[in-house]
């Protein structure tokens, strides 16, 4: 991290201070952290479901976008749709594309990693087209969809900040995800299939169905993340609707050890980094790209530290 600052010619001490201030210093900073955490928490939980089932879903971004698109399309068709209905539509949007990728793997042998990556690109192009075409707000000149009326948006807690009830929903969903994965038979089957499909099969479970189900949940959560971003923050979708939230889901989920409670912590960490580095970019000579570089460096540090302590542990264990 220090090295990164030096490379960019930034003063080390004050850079750290700017990051910390941007993430935690006051009400506004904390709300920025939580607002950035929310989509990553949902997509991270989404990844957790798929990966736990042995479905290596790389398509969080595409599912996120499809969620937002489905919500915006519903709003276009039914302008009076309440926010819960919009969110439901976003779940379905994300779910459909994820289940399609799962189906391609299970029934047609297309590796999920490849199909989900490619579907990300398709979703991105589709977003560009939709925002400039059918979903475009006829009033403005920019490729953005029509803005949701205030009544369709999620509740804001405070006029000064962007913090909205979606953050609470995301935390509740993370807790429910924990209960589902670790305390219900279905969750057990998902984890079992992910560890060894053949054991599930030889005990007369249906691995394909279980894996498709996990993909459906995964896609729905990524879609919902897009939905909450749409209904909670932006109120409209444009070509830069997702700030890589679906891609970041993978490191978030892995850093959280594919455990919903761990994912809460890692999403919070990423959220704080995002808000903090934004602050750094705003008040120093650094460009915006420093945000992503710092994120990457911070993740590598955490992973390396984890690996290092594990190695020490096994060493002690062996002695």
């Amino acid at each position: 991290m220090i090295l990164t600052f030096l490379i960019f010619g930034l003063p080390v001490g004050s850079s750290f201070r700017l990051i910390a201030e941007g993430a935690f210093s006051d009400k506004i900073a904390i709300s920025r952290t939580l607002v950035a955490m929310t989509p990553m928490l949902l997509t991270g939980i989404g990844m957790t479901f798929a990966w736990r089932a042995g479905m290596y879903n790389i398509g969080g971004e595409g599912q996120f976008i499809c969620g937002g698109l489905a919500g915006a399309a519903l709003f276009q068709a039914v302008p009076s749709a309440p926010s819960w209905l919009l969110l439901l539509a976003t779940c379905i949007g994300g779910m459909l594309i994820a289940v399609f990728a799962g189906w391609l793997q299970i029934k047609r042998g297309v590796p999920l990693v490849i199909s989900t990556i490619l579907l990300n690109f398709i979703a991105l192009q589709f977003l560009d087209w939709a925002c400039a075409g059918p979903l475009k707000d006829p009033v403005g000149g920019v490729p953005l969809s029509k803005r949701l009326p205030e009544t369709s948006m999620l509740l804001r807690f405070d006029r000064q900040t962007d913090l909205h009830s979606g953050t609470v929903y995301a935390l509740v969903i993370a807790a429910l995800a924990y209960i589902f994965l670790f305390l219900t038979p279905e969750g057990f089957r998902i984890r079992l299939v992910g560890q060894n499909t053949r054991v599930a099969r030889s005990n007369r479970m249906k691995p394909n169905q279980i894996q498709l189900g996990a993909m459906a949940i995964s896609g729905a959560l990524c879609g919902l993340a897009g939905g909450i971003e749409y209904v909670g923050i932006s109120g409209q979708i444009g070509t830069s609707f997702s700030q890589n939230w679906g891609f970041l889901a993978i490191p978030v989920a892995l850093l959280g050890s594919l455990h919903p409670l761990g994912v809460i912590a890692s999403a919070l960490y990423f959220g704080a980094l995002f808000a903090g580095c934004n602050n750094l970019a705003r008040y120093s000579s650094a460009q915006n790209s420093i945000i992503y570089i710092m994120q990457a460096v911070a993740v590598l540090i955490v992973v390396a530290l984890g690996q290092w302590s594990r190695q020490r542990e096994t060493k002690v264990h062996n002695e």
Binding site: F188, R198, V199, R201, S202
Partner: peptide
């Protein structure tokens, strides 16, 4: 090892299967 057990899951979990 291939069909009987999920080797990286706990003994608890493996006994839970049936």
């Amino acid at each position: 090892q291939l069909d009987g057990l999920a080797l990286s899951m706990s003994v608890n979990d493996n006994l839970l299967v049936t």
